[in-house]
């Protein structure tokens, strides 16, 4: 059912990417609030998860989001030198650079993962970043990993049964 739904979404012209965002409490989440207070309109495709610090963003969260159907993942933290917790954003940056390589080796386009430093006063930067990311991902099209997983699982299943069949023969 999920498969059908995703295929249907993908097939329709109205396909809208879904971006999971991890925003740090002190800078980027506040900036997103500021964008709201200032009524700075932007694309409705992001879904923000608040964390205290971008240093809390476990690489597994990102992989998990992709594997569960996110078309993009955005991480927002304080500018270098401005981290509320001194250096959590540097830790995040290191993980991000590593993860960039991992995801490209998995065949996920690097534009789908983005790290941005957005300070509490940069409400407009939220707009710029979100709109830009949405536009780029729209060009790339859906990632659709859950669909692919299903297909791969099916293939594996067929393969398995073929092997099983052969084994029977050999047995």
């Amino acid at each position: 059912m999920l498969l059908d739904k995703l295929t249907e979404q993908t097939g329709s012209k109205q396909w809208q990417p879904k971006i999971v965002a991890f925003f740090c409490n002190w800078c980027t989440y506040t900036a997103a609030d500021l964008a709201g207070v200032s009524r700075i309109k932007h694309a409705p495709n992001i879904r923000v998860i608040r964390v205290m610090c971008s240093g809390r963003v476990d690489p597994q969260f990102i992989l998990d989001a992709f594997s569960k159907g996110a078309d993009g993942v955005l991480i927002g933290g304080c500018h270098p030198g401005d981290c509320h917790y001194q250096e959590g954003n540097y830790k995040c940056l290191r993980r991000f650079q590593m993860l960039k390589r991992v995801i490209s080796s998995l065949g996920i386009e690097s534009e789908r993962l983005r790290l941005e430093w957005i300070s509490a006063s940069e409400g407009d930067k939220v707009r710029v970043v979100v709109n830009d990311m949405v536009a780029k991902i729209k060009q790339l099209g859906p990632l659709g990993l859950p669909v692919k997983y299903k297909e791969w699982a099916k293939e594996m299943h067929v393969l398995d049964s073929e092997i099983a069949g052969k084994e029977e023969v050999y047995a």
Binding site: K18, V20, V51, F61, A65, K68
Partner: peptide, 13 residues
């Protein structure tokens, strides 16, 4: 808590 948020956002059932 965070994984469940991700699940929820993506409606991963």
């Amino acid at each position: 808590e965070i994984y469940s948020e991700i699940d929820g956002i993506l409606n991963y059932e």
